[in-house]
Design a binder for these strands. Sequence first.
DNA 1: ACGCCCTCCTGTTGGC
DNA 2: TGCCAACAGGAGGGCG
Length: 271
Amino acid sequence: MPELPEVETTRRGIEPGLRGQRIRAVHVHDRRLRWPVTPGLAAALRGQRVRAVQRRAKYLLLRLERGTLILHLGMSGNLRVLPRASPLLKHDHLELQLDSGLVLRLNDPRRFGSCLYTTDDPARHPLLRDLAPEPLEPGFDGAYLQRITRQRRVAIKLLLLNGRLVTGVGNIYASEALFRARIRPRRAARSLTAGECARLTTAIRRVLGAAIRVGGTTLRDYVGADGKAGYFRQRLYVYERAGLPCRRCRTPIRQITQGQRSTYYCPRCQA
DNA sequence: ACGCCCTCCTGTTGGC
DNA sequence: TGCCAACAGGAGGGCG
């Protein structure tokens, strides 16, 4: 579900309720996430204050006094800050109870999400250590994309989903960025010109930024920390628009499969 | 190293 | 209405 804009929206939504708060208790209702939640988690977190809520790629980092809680929402996860008395929903797998009387709840039907605790530098954690640069930070530009694509025969759309090369972009924004950059998703990565690399990095930055500004994209079940849907969906040019007229040229949008996942593009706008 | 395929899991949708 | 297959915002891991 959540790509960078949805994770960032979640971060902004939970931060006010978390920062500075002390964790009074941790309740784990179901340990079976992507990696089993360790039995010692509750004891490790109890009593610690939340110093900051950060994001790295699609991971959320709760910086505590003595360590970091690393959260990932997988395909179907969301985090909400609620009054403690709010009824527990199906698939609410864990919650942090705060001194304020509010709780942070993780709901994740598919359980592809994760919740890990480390007392080391989280940037050196095995799951974070090899991630590509942040796409909204200065290092992510045409020169970077050109450098990582030179020897790669993989389709550019699939390369955008490889978190060691590009982070934050998932299945929706990969198609959307390629449309905005006017590049066919099946093009071999190494065939992109310098100009196309520049266009594509710009398109990625713009589409992610625009999505963040409106709270992300809600297709089915994504909600931000306040329970509200994101409304970038109405600004999508191609994703889930197979057969519908291109919003730019009216040519029907095509849907293809790459790496067992759907890709959408306009056969006329994207050369 | 790279590229491809499979997997984890539940819920929804569409065809028959 | 029921049944069943296909598919869904991710990404680690294993294979050749």
